[in-house]
Design a protein around this nucleic acid. Sequence first.
DNA 1: CGAAATTGTTTTAAGCCTAAAATGTTTCTA
DNA 2: TAGAAACATTTTAGGCTTAAAACAATTTCG
Lengths: 172, 172
Amino acid sequence: MPAASDCTQMLDSETKAVETPEDHAEELRLWLRLLTCTTLIEGEVRGRLRQRFDVTLPRFDLMAQLDKAPDGMTLSDVSKRMMVSNGNVTGLVERLVESGHLDRRTSDTDRRVQVIRLTKLGRAEFRRMAAEHETWIADLFADLSPKDVRELMRLLAKTKASAQKSAGRRRS
Amino acid sequence: MPAASDCTQMLDSETKAVETPEDHAEELRLWLRLLTCTTLIEGEVRGRLRQRFDVTLPRFDLMAQLDKAPDGMTLSDVSKRMMVSNGNVTGLVERLVESGHLDRRTSDTDRRVQVIRLTKLGRAEFRRMAAEHETWIADLFADLSPKDVRELMRLLAKTKASAQKSAGRRRS
DNA sequence: CGAAATTGTTTTAAGCCTAAAATGTTTCTA
DNA sequence: TAGAAACATTTTAGGCTTAAAACAATTTCG
């Protein structure tokens, strides 16, 4: 497996083929760029949520999950969807119940399970924030053409699948 | 500015042009996908670093910055590069000095400035980790063709520029 | 020069986050 | 049906992270 998988083309792949210990610099640069983009946007959204609504990003994210599930979700569901640890969700929920945004109840059929929902207040506040949030995102991506957006979606779907496969290989 | 900037094409842009309150669902979906990819990969890297080297991701990231700067960096530089708060860096550095990976000294020319460097131990450990880290990244992105990688790099560069512009608009 | 603004870092207070262990509940299975 | 395995959640311990305020040193400028 010769290491010709980066964009600095080799005219003669035989020249250095044997003793190259695999060059993955391009993938590494891609990962750093992906991380930079996410950090940049996330920081911007975090700051705007705090300034405009005095709410933290994790709280907003949790409410966003619940807004999509009118019948409520279990803590495990939330934890999987948000890709954060169980314990993290416990604390987050605690604070949101405390502030009156969430309603928590033990499931009737399985006493292990906690079902959480947005309260009326929680839903109203989330909708108000979400509307503005959407315009921020649109603005942050404003210089991408519709075609760029489609293409990015496609490539990120491929990336996600690749990463999931790799993560699966490790665990099994 | 009619709202035709998503990929669900309108056959007749006059039909709904007037009363559409701007649809940015595509950008929103793109942002969520970007976030998912990053979270997925970051979690995987975090776990592997912990299992293989008993080191946290932030520590690794900080050491990565310093490895690229043999003459050291100031805390501000590090904070800007890593896109984290100043206070965050202070604590991170504290623990890495404590464990013998970093060397910290006050600048001779400006007594406000702290210059930090990797120690011999720090550099050796980082290099060992970095080599393996690079293979993990390559594996996580393994299903992307070289062309995919190039294209993603290009689109993410555009994304980064767009987001920076938007963030700048807000601050000014 | 000396006050004011700026810059670099640390501190503070609060919240976020994780991995691992503990707890309580349900389901599987011998 | 009893014990084991699996599951959902919470707790624990430690570290990460932020925003804002405080502190210290330097630079700017009237």
